[in-house]
């Protein structure tokens, strides 16, 4: 059910670990739902020079964490904030529909870590919080039964909630 790329990033995840004295740390998800992502960022001159993660979750959760950290390294904060869950999923050659919320979690983890960095540095928040759909299982549970769910659904819902 997973693409080869997903399996590769799951079996050989890039950037697993923690960063001592990270400039930004973000954690999203809920153990009740079965997935938590914690992302650590090292940021110099507004550029993400290093990213590491720890994830409790399924194969897709680990793979999206791995891919997300790969994608944001070398990017500016603004560029990183523009990375969508769909971009992460696409980079993995897609995810099964029921696993799209995992990519959503990756997007949120990046945003939470950057938010933390901005806050620590007294920079005005670029309101990124979309925690509703990531913190409560119930909020997106119905989507797992939605046959018509496509790659964009989850994200669209998040944006509507903002």
């Amino acid at each position: 059910m997973y693409s080869e790329k997903v399996m590769d990033h799951f079996m050989n995840p890039r950037n697993v670990g923690e960063i001592e004295n990270a400039d930004g740390v973000g954690q999203v998800g809920n153990p009740k739902c079965g997935d938590i992502m914690k992302m650590y960022l090292k940021i110099e001159n507004n550029v993400i020079v290093d990213a590491k993660f720890k994830t409790f979750g399924c194969g897709a959760a680990v793979a999206t964490s791995s891919m997300a950290t790969e994608m944001i390294k070398g990017k500016t904060v603004e560029e990183a904030l523009k990375i969508t869950n769909k971009a992460v999923a696409d980079a993995l050659d897609g995810l099964p529909p029921v696993k799209m919320h995992c990519s959503n979690l990756a997007e949120e983890a990046i945003k939470a870590a950057i938010e933390d960095y901005l806050k620590k540095n007294g920079i005005t928040s670029v309101s990124t919080d979309c925690n509703i759909c990531c913190k409560k299982c119930d909020d997106f549970e119905h989507e797992h039964y939605d046959d018509e769910q496509d790659d964009g659904t989850e994200m669209d819902k998040c944006q509507r909630r903002k």
Binding site: C33, G57, A61, H101, C137, E141
Partner: peptide
């Protein structure tokens, strides 16, 4: 989480099962 465990066991040639949500297509 169970699904991760199953995938890794599968890579080692062990077929097993889990009650994890991730293996059932729901979040519970």
């Amino acid at each position: 989480e169970g699904e991760s465990l199953l995938l890794m066991l599968d890579m080692k040639g062990i077929a097993a099962s889990s009650g994890s949500a991730c293996t059932s297509g729901s979040l519970d």
